[in-house]
């Protein structure tokens, strides 16, 4: 069965102008993200993976090239269209969770659901990430893993087509990290959400359907993983 292309990147370059020097973060990058896959983008720091994620997530614009999301060129979007793209199509998970400290777990999720017309049920999503009993706790009353679960709930409650994780396990211990990865796979399977995880941790690639390896702003590897490993079997 031919896979549906969700996102297609066409010769994407990004150059940062740092006054005297120009830094080329991405160099003519071309690849496609298919609907429903779990993709891992691997690379050491400085390889351009965060830049790539920002551009894919509609938070930054490429210097050159085009990106088609379901056939629409998002590089041509104006500020409001980009905002709507982020609002309706993308969910973000950050390395540092980035929850609002003065809002409870439930309210942090509501922050996202209030933006869209057909969100998932906040309670169900929180129960789904294992926080049924702790919905009304403030972030400071939650462990790091629990905070990251809230962040994931916040990202998926909008029911986005694309879930982007920036080192989602970077700040967590091994066991919690594995649980979070398992949760991401579960979401991928149960909601059919396309998940893109960027990480420097090569072990995580074992659970992906597809892996892209970046180095110095260029794709150096792009392969399909015919037999993704369940998250709980990953070891690092």
């Amino acid at each position: 069965m031919p896979q549906e292309v969700l996102l297609s990147l066409n010769n994407i370059s990004k150059t940062y102008d740092m006054g005297e020097v120009k830094v080329e973060a991405l160099k003519e990058t071309t690849f496609e993200i298919y609907a429903g896959e779990l993709m891992v983008i691997l690379g050491p720091s400085g390889s351009g993976k965060s830049t790539l994620l920002n551009i894919v997530g509609g938070m930054d614009r490429p210097t050159l090239g085009q990106i088609f999301y379901r056939g629409r060129d998002i590089t041509q979007f104006d500020e409001m269209e980009l905002t709507l793209y982020r609002r309706q199509e993308v969910g973000f998970i950050f390395q540092l969770y980035n929850l609002m400290s003065s809002l409870t777990a439930r309210e942090n999720v509501e922050l996202a659901t209030e933006l869209v017309d057909h969100p998932l049920s906040v309670e169900e999503v929180l129960a789904g990430v294992g926080l049924k009993e702790r919905m009304d706790h403030f972030p400071s009353q939650l462990s790091g893993g629990e905070q990251q679960r809230v962040a994931i709930a916040r990202a998926i409650a909008k029911n986005p087509g694309l879930l982007l994780g920036d080192e989602p396990t970077g700040a967590l211990d091994y066991e919690t990290g594995i649980q979070i990865l398992g949760l991401l796979r579960e979401i991928n399977v149960s909601y059919g959400t396309t998940v893109v995880i960027i990480t420097h941790n090569a072990a995580i690639a074992d659970m992906a359907d597809r892996v892209i390896r970046l180095r110095s702003g260029r794709i150096v590897e792009d392969w399909n993983n015919p037999e993704p490993m369940p998250a709980e079997r990953i070891v690092w």
Partner: peptide, 14 residues
């Protein structure tokens, strides 16, 4: 700053 970044990333407009 960070909170504003998150809001914008989540899809809140300026």
């Amino acid at each position: 700053r960070t909170a504003i970044g998150i809001l914008k990333a989540t899809g809140y407009s300026n």
